[in-house]
């Protein structure tokens, strides 16, 4: 564990707490893509099934359980508790266009051709693009509540912080994980436009609005 990965994980945790806080305090999931949240459930279950056969550390297991449980809870909040506040008519990104290519990438790029490893690779690629329905929705509405942008910023920062972690691990442990690194760079890249608007508008006290 190094400081970059730890801060990345904290940022990921923070993003979930911000999202839960947004839903609970506004009693609404307006502006949040159900499709993106559902993809995260798929990502976490696919990747963290290794809880059953791989033990890394208490920290690792606790985080995995938290990410699975919290992502399922968010789906429950969106689909049942605050269902009327979710507007499916603006959440229309076709997730098949993400799932199928990720499955193909996982079949081609994996560390071993077995079920667990292909599933792991699939979850890594899917995580990289799971934010697209949310960003697509943001693009369509052209604006977002401040709290939603803080959620997205924390979520984007999480994988961005893994990049210096991988550089650090390469130099200290000689360790390279080409699949995670490639997908992580793609994932961070998808946030660049968002980060630009977040830093130049939201953090300057303005509302998050995209140019028409």
């Amino acid at each position: 564990m190094n400081i970059f990965r730890f801060l990345g994980d904290l940022s990921h945790l923070a993003s979930i707490f911000i999202l839960l806080h947004k839903i609970q305090t506004t009693r609404s999931c307006r502006g949040i893509s159900f499709r993106t949240q559902a993809l995260y459930v798929v990502v976490f279950i696919a990747r963290y099934l290794d809880l059953f056969f791989r033990y890394v550390s208490l920290y690792n297991s606790a985080m995995k359980l938290f990410f699975i449980a919290s992502s399922c809870y968010i789906l429950y909040l969106m689909k049942i508790r605050y269902r009327p506040t979710h507007d499916p008519s603006i959440d229309t990104f076709r997730v098949e266009y993400l799932l199928a290519p990720c499955l193909i990438l996982a079949l081609i790029f994996n560390y071993k051709f077995n079920f667990a490893e292909v599933l792991w690779s699939f979850s890594i690629w899917l995580e990289a693009v799971a934010i697209l329905p949310q960003l697509f929705m943001l693009q369509r509405t052209g604006e977002a509540e401040n709290i939603t942008t803080h959620y997205l910023a924390a979520l984007g920062a999480y994988r961005a912080l893994y990049i210096p972690n991988w550089i650090y691990r390469y130099f200290t442990e000689g360790l390279v994980d080409p699949i995670a690194v490639t997908a992580g760079i793609v994932q961070t890249g998808l946030y660049l436009d968002f980060f630009y608007v977040y830093f130049t508008k939201v953090l300057q006290g303005q509302k998050f609005e995209l140019p028409a």
Partner: peptide, 10 residues
């Protein structure tokens, strides 16, 4: 050598 990835990250 072989790529040995430990999957010790989240």
């Amino acid at each position: 050598g072989n790529v040995v990835v430990q999957h010790d990250e989240l």
